[in-house]
Structures are given as structure tokens and as C-alpha cells.
Nucleic acid binder design. Sequence first.
RNA 1: GGGGACGUGGUGCAGCCUGGUUAGCAUGCCGGUCUGUCACACCGGUGGUCGCGAGUUCGAGCCUCGUCGUCCCCGCCA
Length: 574
Amino acid sequence: MLKRTHRLHELNESLIDKTVVINGWVDRIRNLGGIIFVWIRDRYGVVQVLFQPDTPAYEIAKNLSGEYVIGVEGIVRERPKDAKNVDLASGNIELLAQKVEILAESKTPPVYTNRDEGSEDVRLKYRYLDLRRRSIQYNLIFRHKLIQKTREYLNSNDFLEIETPYLMKSTPEGARNFIVPSRIKQGTFYALPQSPQIFKQLLMIAGFDRYYQVARCFRDEDLRADRQPEFTQIDLEMSFVDQEDVQEMVGNLVKYLFKAVRGIDIGDVPSMQYQTAMELYGSDKPDLRFEMKMENLTSKSFSSKLDFLSPRVEEEVKMIVIPKNDVLSRKALDTYSESAKSSNLRLGWAKFNGENFVGSIGKVLSTVHDLNVKTGETVIICTGKKNDVNTFLGRTRVEIANKIGIIENTFKVLWINDFPMFEWNEEDKRFQAQHHPFTMPYLEDLENHSDDLSKIRAHSYDLVINGWEMGSGSVRIHTRALQERVFKLIGITEEEAKKRFGFFLEAFEYGAPPHAGFAIGVDRLVSVMLGVTSLRDVIAFPKTTSGSDLMMDTPSEVSEDQLKELGIKLEEHR
RNA sequence: GGGGACGUGGUGCAGCCUGGUUAGCAUGCCGGUCUGUCACACCGGUGGUCGCGAGUUCGAGCCUCGUCGUCCCCGCCA
């Protein structure tokens, strides 16, 4: 076998006249009749090989085709002056082939390995070919660097990397678990972790003080472009710290990563209250790359005269001002009115032409003079239940910003603090923990609002970048009494708590240090740093939106014998 | 669980609204010409159960219903 002496990025002018051997895939062939040019590709780069007629190598080269794996021995030489390629890193040189060996042939590939096009199902089925594409290799190399830099940073801050089990106990609250049947104890099941939450808290109780892990997490819920059933977190936990300490550590880590892998200084990470974020941006993950904040008009005297928009009792009136643009037509604006209606909201809009407002609520607004709107701007005013208005306008804000193209190409990183501890679950008719039930509530809220759990704040915090939730964390409860109290508030009875978390509650009785932690979604962080919208572009072997792997064809049936061993009988389905 | 878009040679797309003779384009692949190309160019050719099933019709890639798959969104995701 012709074994390489150099990898492709290593070929440059310094090797001119030297004999080298390279290995790689045939990327492209240009057969000019007399001579043949072949681009060879490996992980590191692309180099042009020249085959000249009347040589043994030339005769073999005539039979080459795309994606063949070959070895070439040849002499590195400078390209003729007018034949250099400035677009190619190795464009000043080429390899004059003397020997060539075909190491593996290839059928015509069903995906383009040298172009970013093709339907995703075919690409996922032949993922190993899709992964040959330059852009996805770049993404995975970027991801590698980011994880290495993370380890470097956390190690230098005395964090210990400790692994925790993937086969664990099913936990009730939160996302649905993937479950794994036990063969040895038939009829019982493991669950795959939604996160290493309990383990990392136990590590704190054990005294490890600063822990981290690049952990895989599993959640059996419906998928989205930004959600995979298994995903990776940089999971960390610290003892004898408060919220500020964790945020400083994580904020500096993120800052370090942006600098180290993207060369960008994001500055210090500012904080915003959850309530503020909802009030101004209608979202707990506001995108701060553009303005268009919501303005609350409820108390303005003209609000009650807003015709069909005027608020009823307990309703709010809110406005966003859209910058001057030629993109939003009357028809486009009317669709927002329509979709507001389906959310039980009322929405009107009007464009300010310098003197008057023109639009569905133009007449009323033309009598108002303190709206602070500039010529050419459009206002959207929405009325309805507070939460609905916030959510709807928040979503509309982002949609419009995308449409009219006002989103700056930058990174806006921030903390969202003081999330509500509990949220009402309409389906189960009970309150549940919004973050998770191990989160430390504000103790004064707990005393003052025992009648209304929705008013209790938690020491929990999210990291948000460009409108994406990058991770979340909290100060944890570290006493048995408080943990039991929180369980009780979310309707977990004493016996239930004992059965599910007894070992954990017991651990609190043997000296549990105050602790807090965080987890960063690696897939999302890499995506946002690279500016790609789908997690699939930063994961080597991702799943589809229905949770299957098109290459392996999973999930799939297992044999009768396997089921029998597990003591499992399938019901007839479909 | 709900809504939307898509499914046509190996691959990417057009054709469907308004049903009708041979399903079009690009690329790939095969053959030919070509000694400085770089998405080489030019000439010729090969390649399609129009996802699957049913229905309407004299006739379905096109219309209807169902089904499977992919993508996007809502619910869901502590």
C-alpha cells in the first residue's frame, strides 16, 4: 500500500521537488484528454494531482471516479504562474503523480460530498458520506475544540470531571424518561437520565466541591430543530457558593470559549429579571440583537377608547413599534390581526406617515399625540389577557424582525434571573416545579405567598444567547425539611417522596453543603456560535424529528427471544 | 395529540392550479474530442413502478381519500 508521508495541509512550497506520498478521496476529476487533474481530499485539505500521459499512473488515473480512495506518490512542484488557484490553500503547488494505487473503489455516491445541497433524509441515510462534506467536518472540528477548551478552563479552576450512570431511576417530574428493561430483575426498569441532576448533588454532598461532566442527557419528548432526544450538556456543580459565584464562573467560561474558538470578545454577561424579560420581550429567552421592545399602554387614557381593541377588566394593552421598512404590506399586517384572533386577542396596526396614522386603527391613533413614533414606522397594538399578549407579541416581534431584516450579526449573551418556582399545569390541575423540584425558592416568598404559589420566585437562572436558551441552573435545596416542603407543595405525598427520593432526602441528613450549579447545552451553543439553525448540523449522527435514525433504521423491533428474556410481551399495536 | 410544507431517473428540481400522445431541466454516470484545468469545456448516450394504497374518470405525476416518510410550527420539552 502507498502509505502517506504527509497529510494534505502539510503540502506547501517548502516541499517543492521533494517526493511525497498522499492518501485521500477523489474529490473531483478534470480530464483534459492529454492530462488529468484530480483533486484529492482528506480531513485537512485539498491538493491537486497532475497525471501526465504515457505514464503508468496516467493509465490508472483514467479509471478513477469520485470518492475512490487512493494513494499517490509524486513530486511536489510549483504550479505555472498563470495556473495558480488563489481559492485553494494549496493553490500554488500541485503533485506530479509518479505512482498511483487505488485503495478502494466507490459507487456513484447518493449524496454530494463536495456541495452543501441535498435532501436531509437521503443525507441522514448515508450519514457517513454526508459527514465527508467540508462544512460539517468544520462544524464537528469546531465542536471538538469547544469541548477541549471547556475542559481546559474548568480543569484550571479545580473542577473534577466525574462520570455518572446512564442507567438510573425513572423520575416523575419533568420530561418523559426513556426506559430500559432489566433482564436480571424481570419486570423492573432503568431510566436514562434527563440530566445527571441528582448525581451531581450527591457528589457535592460527598465533598467533591467542584464537579463537571460532558454528559449525554435523554428526554423522550417531541422534537424540534433545536431539540434532539439525546443531547450533550456541560454539566457542572459547585459547593459553598451562591448564584453570583456560579454565574461568574459560567459567564467567564462562555466568554473564554467565544474568545478561544471564535476570537470574539462578548464582554461581561448582563442580567435581566424574568419579569422584565416577559414584560419587555414577551419571552424568557429574549433576543437582544434588535430593539422593538413592547410598550405597556394599559394605563394610557386613550387605551379605553381604542375601539374594538379597548381592554376589558384584567386585560392589558401593549404596543410594538416596527422600524420603517418596505417589506410589511397591509396584507402581511392583516395576517397578524388574524392570528391574534385565534389566540383570543385583538390586534390593530397603523403606519405613521408624518401626520396621520393609516391602518386598521389609524383613525383612533391619529387623535393621540404622545406615542413617540417616527415617520414611516408602524405600530402594532394588541389587547387581551396579560400572558397571552406577552407571548403573542413576543413571538410576533421576532417574526417581524426576521422578515424586515433588522437582526444584527452579533452575539447578545445574558442571564435571566428569578424564574417563578412553580407553574400551573392545566392538564394535571396542580402546580409543578418550573425548573426542577430541587431548586431553592426565595424563602421570603415562600412565607409571604403560601396562598399563591405562582408568586414564589426561585433562585434559578438561564443563560440566553440570541434568543436561544443555552442552559439553566439554580441554587439547590440542601436541607431535608425544605426539600420535603417543596415536594408537598407540588403534590408529592410523603410516602411518594420517600419511595422515589428517599435515598436523596436521607443524604441531606448527613451534612449537605450549600451548593448550586448549571448546565450548558453543547449542541445549541455550538450551533449558535456557528450560526447554523439546526442541531443536526453539529451532531455526527443525529435523529429525525420523529426520533429515528435513518441510517440504522432505529427504533426497530427486537426478536421474540430478546423479549422473552426480559419478560416482556407486546400488545397488538395498530 | 394538532396544523402546515414536501415526496418525480443516482442526486437536486420543474411539471400538478387548468387531467390527454414521447414526463422536462440541471447534475451525476457511460462513450467521444481536447496538454494547464480548477464546479474544465464541447458533442453524443444511458437512466424514471412520478413514496405506497384506494377512489373519481374513457383517461391520473396532476383531482379526492387514506397511509408511510422527511422538514417546520403549536401542544409537550422540570
